[in-house]
Design a protein around this nucleic acid. Structure first.
Lengths: 204, 204
DNA sequence: GGGCAAGCGGAGCAACCGCTCCGCTTGAAC
DNA sequence: GTTCAAGCGGAGCGGTTGCTCCGCTTGCCC
């Protein structure tokens, strides 16, 4: 309840940079930057004090800008996830072969998530940090699936949800001991199991 | 340091039921039973007070019998894991077809783990609750792998560790929303990707 | 430069959790 | 029945974590 009271009485304060003092703006940015780094390194369960320390502000300042730790985490992850999904779109658009586009996506999931604990946790558990993010991701995967299916490369009966779940489960492998040297092998296994080389459709 | 001082001065007090009062013995059993149930339901991070409540004893009694929550968890999981692995051995011995033995094991992993949070967590993270358990499990999986390989059913280059990691990663699927209706499909995908139907060996 | 609202920092509150301490109770040996 | 060590329960300690409160500082407008 300390947030958006802005200078102008109108609108929903979309960019929300209005009417904030210069130092406040700097602090806000520093907090998001630090939070993003800390969450990536240690996951979403870090002590808020660590984020305050790393961004060089006090607890009061942190909570003036963000109503709760949960909100800060969500905002940070939304940002990262959106950028990540944009990159995925670009890569897919630049790839001719539908199957290569799909397997390229799996690879991007796994390489990115390997370096971002909090992002990975949210991907593994629900598919993304927010419902909106998950929807966008699902839509993207669905397009990849469609392309592969039309080209007759995908096994019959494979759903979008299957692809999401499978990529998420492989994320898990990455962070087990020795996982860094193993995820690519298991990704190959999974993708091969998804290919139309298997004439039997998946059981419903 | 309150533990084994037994009546007899000899031996390592293997079953450790010696020289304990009847009520103490009852309480000890009640605690393990309750702990096993609670850990299965809610995972290894439950409040110790919950276990004390469910077993009908006070905190003092709980800590008289078990030096730490970690020890109680380990003991409970060791017990469950051992029983589970014994069942796996029996099933495998009773199954003629090597490939069916392997896929039967995957199925057992996933059905069991679906109802046991703490056990699943330990399986996902390291392969079992203790190093000894993991070794036994690895040895068992290695025997399954060997059987499949000798029968020419397994894709070349698949290691024991791969099978352990893959089954663990599928555990993750089980506890995501909708996972109960999806893990069997993804298990099929994974197993098919592991079959010798794929002539290309796994990349090293 | 002066005035003051916006902003700041961090001590501290409340809730939680693993574990301990100690006065009371009780099983069992005689 | 008496005795007493073994056993019991739960209040409470110490540490952690999310969040708040409030006295002090500072950017901005004149």
């Amino acid at each position: 309840m300390t947030e958006h009271r802005a200078t102008a009485p109108s609108a929903g304060a979309s960019t929300a940079t209005r009417g904030r003092r210069a130092d406040a703006e700097r602090n806000r940015a520093a907090i998001i930057t630090a939070a993003t780094a800390v969450f990536a390194e240690r996951g979403g369960e870090v002590d808020v004090r660590e984020i305050a320390r790393r961004s060089g502000v006090g607890m009061g300042t942190l909570y003036r800008h963000f109503p709760s730790k949960e909100d800060l985490l969500r905002l940070s992850l939304e940002q990262e996830f959106t950028a990540w999904l944009t990159e995925a779109h670009e890569r897919a658009a630049a790839t001719q072969d539908p199957w290569q586009a799909l397997s390229g996506f799996f690879e991007q999931v796994l390489t990115t998530q390997a370096h971002n604990r909090a992002l990975m946790d949210s991907y593994v558990q629900t598919g993304g940090p927010t419902e909106a993010c998950v929807q966008k991701c699902r839509a993207f995967i669905d397009a990849l699936r469609e392309r592969c299916e039309q080209a007759g490369l995908l096994r019959r009966g494979v759903s979008t949800e299957d692809l999401l779940s499978l990529s998420a489960s492989l994320c898990q492998v990455v962070q087990t001991p020795g996982g860094q040297h193993r995820w690519r092998r298991l990704m190959t296994v999974s993708l091969d199991g998804l290919s139309s080389r298997h004439p039997e459709p998946l059981p419903s």
